[in-house]
């Protein structure tokens, strides 16, 4: 099953690239979802290879958490957009050193 593990690592890396390379908050968010899913894939493939259902339970919980995260995250994006009229994270460079 290390094939699916490798796949999950690749998906995670792609998500990582998306988080760093994207400038729009929503797209970054989508990349984060990609990363979460790659973690789920790893969990499920572990469950499969070890014959233990607990991995699937964890994946289930991760999905629930992702739903909560999406709710809050999208809320923040909307709120920021209201005050900034922009969803580009580069426009939020306020904490300048």
């Amino acid at each position: 099953m290390s094939y699916y593990l490798l796949l999950s690592a690749l998906l995670f890396a792609i998500g990582l690239y998306g988080v760093l390379a994207r400038r729009t908050a929503i797209l970054i968010f989508m990349s984060i979802e990609l990363m979460l899913n790659s973690a789920n894939l790893a969990l499920v493939s572990f469950a499969r290879s070890s014959g233990n259902l607990e991995g699937q339970v964890m994946a289930l919980l991760v999905i629930a958490l992702a739903a909560a995260e999406v709710a809050v995250g999208l809320g923040i994006i909307v709120a920021v957009f209201r005050s900034r009229e922009s969803t580009s994270v580069d426009d939020l460079a306020e904490f300048r050193g």
Binding site: A67, A68, E69, A71, V72, L74, G75, I76, V78, A79
Partner: peptide, 8 residues
């Protein structure tokens, strides 16, 4: 999270 999203 639901409450937070609504209030946000």
């Amino acid at each position: 999270a639901t409450v937070a999203a609504v209030s946000l």
